[in-house]
Write a protein that binds this DNA or RNA. Sequence first.
DNA 1: AGTGAAATAGTCCGAGT
DNA 2: ACTCGGACTATTTCACT
Lengths: 158, 158
Amino acid sequence: MEEIDRRIVTLLARDGRMSFTDLARETGLSVSAVHQRVRRLEKRGVLRGYAALVDYDSIGLPLTAFVSIKPIDPAAADDAPDRLAHLSAVEACHSVAGDESYILKVRVASPIALEELLNQIRTAANVSTRTTVVLSTPYEHRTPEPAGEDGGGPEERA
Amino acid sequence: MEEIDRRIVTLLARDGRMSFTDLARETGLSVSAVHQRVRRLEKRGVLRGYAALVDYDSIGLPLTAFVSIKPIDPAAADDAPDRLAHLSAVEACHSVAGDESYILKVRVASPIALEELLNQIRTAANVSTRTTVVLSTPYEHRTPEPAGEDGGGPEERA
DNA sequence: AGTGAAATAGTCCGAGT
DNA sequence: ACTCGGACTATTTCACT
């Protein structure tokens, strides 16, 4: 991955609807060249898609939580992600190192809805759960700077 | 929030670059009407922006982790989010209930970069950290179904 | 809030370097 | 891999219902 591609990715990560015309202006390339690069980045899977960022309070899902899960039978086949995929409230599922197997991020309408969801998670995946309720979100969906060719990576913001 | 608006929000959450023409077809409205609704949803803050979904492996940040932080001085002013905002690697910051104060989601290039980042977090915000490394991510950025006017909310996927 | 139409702007592809 | 140019499609605004 090269400088201009990284720039395109960063720009689109910050504004997913930016036009090719604007991208061309920002990168100093022609519109066609940018178009070609974006299509290639999409095909290579570097750009995995585009999403609107939604205010969940506004759409009736004001309660966010992280749910850590652990199989009740430690020998069980670890297909928890598949078993939970049908639950719309589960926004993300990460396999993690540590005492628990997965961390889920969930969005629900209310404490009662959370209780029901936890019951569904437990029965669907045969797991125990530990829930951390989110009180507020100072920021989210920021875009980490791509790392250079070296593995060091800039942790400081430009 | 009404049925058609919820539909527009869901469609754009799933494909942030969907054209007004396509949105019009999906909702049965005219292009102008959809346009007007989208602009209103943006102004009301229901649609907070648009983002490209990036494959972090491809841009040199293959290591994701959740970092829970706790102030060393429990009486300290709780400005940790501000003190950490300059760290590009910090993708999200959630204030949470429980033993720790915040959960951060971070993306780094390597274990060494993670170590350096944790040091920066500790000194910048005067906190202790507890880190959970993400091994893999079965899914992420899914779009929970908006809840109806009732607070119940559908946890099952359509 | 909605429609339709017209002007502007962006997307996309082919040919050429 | 990039540029240019042209055909096509989408966005945006406005007058009207």
